[in-house]
């Protein structure tokens, strides 16, 4: 019973170490539960292009002498195609550093992102 060959013990020891390491790895993998997919969505889906499109449409609308029906169309199309509630107002021309410019207020909200801007065009 005694006098066993003890030279292979390190293999068993390594086996134990690997088992313990695997156990902790499994614990870590288990922790990677539901990562906020909906929260990251808000960051990923900032509607930069939608807002740019809206701004350019509004500036075209000012160039075309502010037609009331065009305003209604912009609001309706934004709602239908981009799912965004938009609204804007254009004031009379003002003198800004020697240029005649219109004060423009823009409001955009698609439920995730709300954007407000006051600018001159």
């Amino acid at each position: 019973m005694a006098r066993l060959n003890e030279e292979g013990q390190w293999i068993v020891l390594m086996g134990l170490l690997v088992a313990v390491a695997l156990f902790f790895l499994a614990l870590i993998v288990n922790q990677s539960a539901l990562v906020g997919q909906t929260t990251s969505e808000a960051v990923l889906e900032f509607p930069k292009n939608d807002i740019r499109d809206l701004r350019s449409a509004i500036f075209d609308y000012i160039d075309a002498e502010c037609n009331e029906e065009v305003e209604q169309d912009i609001i309706a199309i934004s709602l239908e195609r981009k799912n965004a509630v938009v609204s804007f107002s254009v004031g009379g021309p003002q003198d800004v550093q020697g240029h005649k410019m219109h004060p423009v207020s823009i409001h955009y909200n698609n439920g995730v992102t709300a954007y407000n801007e006051t600018t001159h065009y």
Binding site: Q37, T38, V85, S87, F88, S89, S105, H107, N109, G111, V112, A114, N116
Partner: peptide
Amino acid sequence: AEPRWFCDDDPIKDDKT
């Protein structure tokens, strides 16, 4: 995970959508 209903308060025209 929630749906995307929302209530918009428009500061320009003071409308609630």
